[in-house]
Amino acid sequence: MAQEQLTAVVIDDHPAVRDGVAQWLAAGTPAIRVVAAGDDVRVAWLGDGAAADVVILDLHLGGPAPATADLRRLVQAGRRVVVYSMRADDAIALRCLESGALSYLTKAEGAEHLRQATIAAAAGRAYTPPALAGALAGDRSERRPALSARETEVLVEWFQSESKEFVAQRLGISLSTVNTHLEHIRIKYAMSGREAPTKAALVARAIQDGLVRLDDL
């Protein structure tokens, strides 16, 4: 299983985006193969798409209303979803995380973030790109989890600089500590709000990775 190539299904209403994403994912290391692509969520449920490791979902398929119901159904089925959106909207990003998406990227964020998010999602891990970090840092909702001062600083610096090396240098910590903080934050979010299989899996994964201990929960 570990030796097999990672696979993804891309749902987006623009053919150029579908092809571009497939190209980006195939060109990186490790290469990720897009096994199905289309402008309808059905490609993720049928044929090759149904077995893909990661679902890359455009939230605005042709209409102004975001496809949140589709996202929720995929997550309920245990699918690992990366939301890939045109809009940098904090509220929508937070709602996607609440529903159980493993990552939320805006299309302005480029190939590297998409690759990182897809690889992380394939392993059931979360990925927090800078725009999402900004959304989490600016979250003023009632039920947001309590973050430590250091965690907040890491979020803000990552949002501001888009470079983890820069964050590490600024705060005088190692790169892996930066990542650990970001994962911690995501686990706190996964443990708040509505339950979802992927969120439970994310927490389980974190315990397995030794990121959190059972008595922290």
């Binding site: 900004g134 840092a137 600016g138 803000v156 949002f159 501001q160 600089s161 470079s163 820069f166």
Partner: peptide, 17 residues
């Protein structure tokens, strides 16, 4: 350059890298 505006409960932060 990356310019960011962040508004939280406590503060407003405008940064440039």
């Amino acid at each position: 350059a990356k310019v960011s505006v962040l508004r939280t409960d406590e503060d407003v932060r405008v940064a440039v890298v």
